[in-house]
Amino acid sequence: MRKYKDWILFVAIVIPLIIVLRWAISTDIVEGNSMLPNFHNHEMVLTEHITNEFHPPTYNQVVIVDEGSMNIIKRVEGLPGDTLQIKNGRLYRNGKVVNEPYIHEKMASAEPYNTPYDLLHHEYTVPKGHVFVMGDNRNISEDSRYFGPFSYAQIKGEVISEMFPVPTWWMYLVYLGIVGIFVWGFLPSKKNESRILKNRA
């Protein structure tokens, strides 16, 4: 009877743990070159979904945002109340040049599109509860300069690590490893078995 109780306890612990892990951490595949040189086309990234549930976004966070028809990976450059503008190939935030060592190349003096958010023709102030995101490869990236700012609710997670260009099946190996650790923990050791036999003798 004790054996079955142990397995019931095991299942009661492992299944909720897997569900929580699946909600808290996921993998995403980068599509396109808009985040070069830091994230590459078809590269897998690890995304966590906890931070922005409890804390507002911060500068330089690389996030996954829901554009409406798809999820896109971009970097947070503007927070609510920030006034942004592009001058001489540099991004200005609240009148000061933003140090951006992570961008692919200097921004071109012409935008590939003309929208109210393009920052090159006019400055833009980020509304409350929104962020302004941009790709690291600025000259080809369709981001908030094209789509406009994204609400906090559209932020689906923060990218915490780049992985490798393989299918997401590896994540299930992680789950299997976790299950294996729990199973190993519930298996009786030979030392314990010998003690039981001695007690019975």
Results as ranks from 00 to 15, higher is better:
M107I: 07
L46H: 01
L9G: 13
I73F: 02
N52L: 13
Q85D: 08
R75A: 02
F39W: 03
Y175S: 06
L21Y: 07
W169Y: 15
E67S: 03
A153L: 04
N192L: 13
E53R: 07
I86F: 02
E48K: 02
A153H: 13
R75M: 05
S189Y: 09
F182W: 14
V65S: 00
G78T: 10
R138V: 01
V20G: 08
D82Y: 05
N41V: 14
D6P: 06
N33I: 09
A153P: 02
K3C: 11
Y59S: 10
R75H: 02
P16A: 09
Y4K: 13
N114T: 11
S194M: 08
R2A: 04
Y92W: 15
G177D: 05
L84W: 08
F147H: 09
L91S: 09
P80W: 12
I196K: 14
S109N: 09
E77I: 07
I64R: 12
I29E: 09
M44H: 00
P57V: 00
R195E: 05
S109L: 06
N60Y: 15
R93L: 02
L120T: 07
N52H: 15
R90W: 09
V97C: 13
E111N: 13
S151N: 05
E43C: 09
A24G: 09
Q154E: 09
I15M: 12
L176I: 09
G180D: 07
Y172Q: 13
D66W: 02
V131M: 01
L79G: 03
Y102E: 06
E162G: 03
S194T: 12
T47M: 09
K191C: 05
S194F: 11
D136M: 08
S34H: 00
F39E: 00
V179E: 01
L119R: 01
W170F: 14
